[in-house]
Design a protein around this nucleic acid. Sequence first.
RNA 1: CGGGGUGUAGCAUAGUGGUAGUGUACGCGGUUUGGGACCGUGUGGUCCGGGUUCGAUUCCCGGCUCCCCGACCA
Length: 420
Amino acid sequence: MKQSQLFTKTRKEVPSDEVSKNAQLLIQAGYIHKEMAGVYTFLPLGIRVIEKINAIIRDEMNNIGGQELIMPSLQDAEIWKKTNRWSDDLVDVWFKSKLSAGGEVGFGWTHEEVVTHLMTQYIESYKDLPRYIYQIQNKFRNETRAKSGIMRTREFLMKDLYSFARTEEEHLAFYDACAEAYTRIFNRIGIGSKTYKTFASGGAFSKFSHEYQTISDAGEDIIYVNEEKGIAINSEVLADADLSELGVTRDELTERKSIEVGNIFSLGTKFSEALGLTFKDETGSEKPVIMGSYGIGPARSMGTVVELYADEKGIVWPESIAPFQVHLVELSGGDAEIKDYAEGIYDMFTDNKVEVLYDERDVRAGEKFADSDLLGMPYRIVVSRKTKEEGKFEVVERKTGEIKFFTEEELYQKFINANV
RNA sequence: CGGGGUGUAGCAUAGUGGUAGUGUACGCGGUUUGGGACCGUGUGGUCCGGGUUCGAUUCCCGGCUCCCCGACCA
């Protein structure tokens, strides 16, 4: 994409109403726009990052048998009353609205009720199980206090998967498979080395659940972690946890702030019993389906990456989720010969499906470099009179700042051959 | 939801009971051209409602907004 055509612009000043690094940088660079407290637009650059993350999530969810669908945001009160989660006294995050025709709807903040009710249509026999259903869809939560940029918002994207199993063993096998898939997802997104599968409160459903917590001072959670053993425990359940069972002692654990990027829950039969989701087993007796739910916040993950890797110059994207692999910057100074030369490289990349942002704007070098650093593509390729005369291209790695000079052949090898 | 703050141009900010200033961005002219360059010039602004006052952006009341701390976060 040609940068002159991008409708968003970078800003020199950080927005005064944002304190968190993720929001400041993402707004400054033109990835997101704040609409109101806890509500953000994802701009063209931002949605490219989100789609990269979503593609990784889809890949891993499909690999463990997930089937994607999309459920509605508008929620029928009836099914929520059956699980006793409609009342504002019991659930304080509801957004609700009146129907013109009479009655009331809610805006979905999770989807156990909807998906359970849905599956009553399709699950009748043990032959219909197990099933794994997921969506990537906007959730609405009436948070009393939105904060931390895109980390805690009132409308946010969530991948939520729901599992339906015949037996506890079958359920746990999938629970573990999903846990492993989550580990792969966070590795692929680039935050794996700082992300821990963490023991957390099981809530009303089971003794423990697991959260995926990424260590960061920008986090809102407190976990106790042993990095060598890879064991982490949310502070809220530390007192209840049997540490000897987990193979650690209290003084082997360090307190760290962390960001919850995902969670996995065993739900048991709470929802299936309340909503009548049963199946006939081999003997013909009717049993409730055993369920689990598994969430990841793609936007929150994006914010976490910014928090973890940004430097004083701007954002640093891992290659796996960068909106573009290459930021091609021409310093032609209006010289048509250099401009044509750079355009040729741009065409070479685009013809070979390499994602490239091409800065062909008629602005000074300093501004282009500053913008390029801020935007944070993994590689910057500079084309100028100097590089052309030397027959080389300057390739700067954003993460390390390392500068290399490539011939056109080497450029082709690195960015095109490696890509196919 | 409790407490504290905030609101001035697209953005960032200053100031004042009496015609609202600067930087940046933007338009135009010119000089520049490998790290947000410079000169000239121009456009553009006091959150909403009420009150006090000859006069309110400023003071008072109410509302809203956004931010921070706390609580909450199945």
